[in-house]
Nucleic acid binder design. Structure first.
Lengths: 148, 148
DNA sequence: TCAAATGTCATGCTTTAGTATGATTTTGAA
DNA sequence: TTCAAAATCATACTAAAGCATGACATTTGA
């Protein structure tokens, strides 16, 4: 910044000096004033643009490196709701895996049971939670304190 | 852009005309040339700076290198991650409705587009989030601060 | 102005999810 | 021990989700 100001000042000074000299030579020519003015206009326009660029063209590159780790919010299972809704242990297990984004097949594999079994659990779960889809089930379950 | 050029041209024209007039009045004064030149220099410097600013004033570029994982407690949309993953506005909209447990059909109805469109958005979303299912998408999106 | 990105939609297809129903086996409590 | 709930599994569906691909219009940015 300071450098630019100094450079600008220096260039300006030189120009003024140069023009001062040129002034006496050009003055004798016809229409010299127009030429003189035109030159000044041109030079200072360029200078101005240059100055404008210098002072604004500072692109700021911000690099974000921080990683904010998830807070494992303290969760306490609401067993009361569990009982109220008649949700069994196994069903709750299935619900948790469902909430982790597992497919029915994956859940079945993880629990060593058949796909059909998981489907049965899921259906009953949806009934009890009064929802139609697994995504809704997860939402509802979280609301009810059945899931973290 | 075009406007700026026109404005610049117009201002320049007016100045030339004005100076042409001033030229004959100032010429009689002592040192009129210096004053004349000074004025032109001043005016065109300002004009140049203005032009420079106009044509170069690019927004700051923010470069983010790492994906940020956020605390889900207080939510502020992480637009950086959004950009990083190339998730468009519309896709984000779909993502939000998906997170609310809506089916593709319901989402389509809500956004007044076809089911196929939502499926397309969903597929691209899964790709970008690097997941296979909507449930996983929602989870991942929350981790990345794309969803409350 | 021109290319790239975005948004929209379709078709055809495969996979997964969800429903309905019924059956057998476990298990926990009266 | 007995009985009901819970858990398991199956078959047969329908519905929804997801994938791949191509097309076309609109928007936008360089």
């Amino acid at each position: 910044m300071k450098k630019n100001i100094l450079i600008y000042g220096a260039v300006l000074g030189l120009l003024v000096a140069g023009l001062k000299l040129a002034e006496y030579k050009l003055i004798v020519i016809d229409h010299s004033i127009e030429i003189y003015g035109g030159l000044i206009a041109l030079l200072f326009t360029v200078l101005g643009i240059w100055a404008g660029l210098k002072f604004v063209k500072k692109k700021e590159v911000v690099v974000v490196k921080e990683v904010i780790v998830q807070d494992p919010a303290e969760f306490t299972l609401n067993e009361n709701n569990l009982k109220l809704l008649n949700i069994s242990k196994r069903e709750h297990e299935v619900l948790m895996l469902m909430a982790q984004g597992l497919s029915n097949q994956e859940t079945a594999d993880k629990l060593f049971v058949s796909l059909n079994t998981i489907k049965t659990h899921s259906s009953k779960l949806f009934e009890k939670l009064n929802v139609q889809r697994r995504t809704q089930a997860v939402q509802e379950a979280k609301k009810l304190g059945l899931l973290p």
